[in-house]
């Protein structure tokens, strides 16, 4: 596993984001600490869990279940950086926003996340061949 880099649970994300890769503190352009919910734009990226029914056949039916990943594009004094909030967004973001006082009402801070239940909401398509 090159290189050795310390891991941390998603719960600590708002604290970890304050420190840049050079070990120095991050600040927004007007000098505040980074607030993940207010200073960062929410972006989504779809990945998939695909199942090829019969891998030997060239035109086998392929079924893909979407997996939603969430990102925040944050701006600090040195530029932009990305924070993957897939785990944080679902479990902690509302609680954290309320605790830190940056969000008055939990329901209006952002759009509700679309939920995908594997096996029910899936896209079916034929392999383009």
């Amino acid at each position: 596993m090159p290189p050795p880099c310390p891991s941390f649970p998603a719960k600590e994300l708002p604290a970890k984001v304050q420190i840049g890769p050079d070990g120095k503190g991050r600040k927004t352009i007007d000098g505040r600490p980074i607030d993940l919910t207010k200073d960062c734009q929410l972006l989504s990226l779809l990945q998939y869990e695909c199942h090829v029914d019969r891998p030997i056949k060239p035109d086998s039916l392929t079924r893909c279940w979407p997996v939603q990943r969430w990102f925040r594009r944050c701006q600090d004094k040195k530029g932009t950086f990305m924070v993957e909030t897939t785990a944080w967004e679902t479990s902690y973001s509302l609680a954290w926003a309320v605790d830190s006082g940056s969000a008055p009402a939990p329901t209006t801070t952002r759009d509700p996340l679309p939920t995908f239940v594997p096996g029910i909401d899936f896209t079916d398509f034929k392999d383009k061949r």
Partner: peptide
């Protein structure tokens, strides 16, 4: 996120 999202793992780097 180090883990696969669907597994519920929350390890980040």
């Amino acid at each position: 996120l180090v883990d696969t999202p669907e597994t519920g793992g929350e390890t980040m780097i």
